[in-house]
């Protein structure tokens, strides 16, 4: 597919033209950090960011989502019978998604589309989404995408990729969807040799900058129960306060909880993100809790990401190396350190 070059000064207008065909999400400065927001007339996109505070997972998988509903109305023949909440899934595009977050969607997809089950909400939203990535010119010291099968300009999981060349973007369609998105954008010119060469140079330079690693090469061959009963968990979990920051910020955490809410005659079945750090996550109706202790919940998160998921899906670890949990954990629990403990055990 041909590459196109857009001058930065024309960039937002070019994007806006594609709004006829897509709902577009762009990074927007939200106080001290960036987050993805829908591109409206009043939105001021800001592509000068390391990564968004919240991962774009909520665009495909909202934190709270109504999945079923019914009316609890004595007059209604369908009283008490839950029906799927009507929804439409118009084409949408996440512009500026980092390659690690795009990788995350493919990690999560293993869960939502299996041989037996297919999650209709996640899948329909995912399939209507175009991932227009923005390569990382300046990866952070907490980034370790290269050690989990990604990279600052990793193209495998994206539909299109943008290269930031200072005063202009080079946009490259990688899939049909991505090519279509670029074709819907206004303006732009065919890429010249110089831009293509510059883009190539960025990739090599950025990859050198990812110095941090996630050590997990030896975890695969270890026995599950041995690792599960390893002596280091309690000590490693000491500082954990069991909040949900790591799981909610994580682009690859997919667990949810289902709640029924009644307001007046309206009954809704809502699914919400849940976190394995919460005791309620595993609390049983009897009152028994198989993960009663802090370290057990802590262990679950890391075992799931680094042992259960790889063993089950043979798809690498359940981590895309974005580093959000490392940066924003209030007590500095670092997945790289914990993976090291597991690897060396």
């Amino acid at each position: 597919m041909t590459d196109k070059v857009f001058l930065k000064k024309d960039w937002v207008e070019a994007l806006k033209a594609a709004r006829d065909s897509f709902r577009i999400f762009v990074p927007v400065r939200d106080g001290d950090f960036h987050n993805f927001h829908s591109l409206e007339d009043w939105t001021i996109p800001n592509f000068d960011f390391f990564n968004t505070r919240l991962s774009p997972k909520s665009i495909v998988y909202p934190q709270s989502e109504r999945i079923f509903e019914c009316l609890n109305d004595p007059e209604d023949p369908g009283k008490g019978i839950l029906k799927e909440a009507p929804k439409d899934y118009p084409p949408q595009a996440i512009v500026g998604i980092r390659p690690c977050d795009a990788h995350a969607f493919h990690i999560v997809k293993k869960n939502f589309e299996g041989p037996e089950y297919r999650d209709p909400w996640w899948m329909q939203r995912f399939e209507s989404t175009v991932l227009v990535g923005l390569g990382c010119n300046a990866p952070c010291p907490t980034c370790f995408c290269t050690s989990v099968g990604g990279g600052p300009f990793h193209e495998e999981y994206l539909d299109a990729i943008l290269f930031d060349l200072g005063d202009r973007y080079l946009a490259r369609g990688l899939t049909e969807k991505g090519g279509e998105f670029i074709s819907k954008m206004n303006g732009g010119s065919s890429a010249d040799e110089k831009s293509i060469k510059e883009a190539k140079g960025l990739v090599a330079e950025a990859e050198k900058k990812v110095v941090s690693r996630l050590p997990f090469d030896k975890i695969g061959e270890k026995e599950v129960t041995g690792l599960f009963n390893a002596p280091f968990w309690e000590e490693a979990a000491f500082s954990c306060i069991n909040c949900g920051t790591c799981t909610f910020l994580c682009p690859t955490c997919w667990c949810f909880d289902i709640q029924d809410e009644v307001s007046g005659r309206q009954v809704d079945r809502i699914r919400n993100w849940d976190t394995c750090m919460s005791p309620l996550f595993t609390l049983e109706g009897s009152g028994h809790n198989p993960r009663d202790k802090k370290f057990q919940r802590f262990r679950q998160r890391f075992m799931h990401k680094l042992k259960y998921y790889p063993d089950k899906y043979k798809n690498g670890v359940q981590c895309s190396g974005c580093g959000r949990c490392v940066r924003y954990c209030p007590v500095n629990i670092d997945i790289r350190t914990i993976a090291g403990l597991m690897n060396e055990f």
């Binding site: 909202p62 989502e65 109504r66 809410e261 307001s263 309206q266 809502i270």
Partner: peptide, 8 residues
């Protein structure tokens, strides 16, 4: 006032 949950 808690009305019908404002969710997606």
């Amino acid at each position: 006032i808690k009305k019908r949950a404002e969710v997606a």
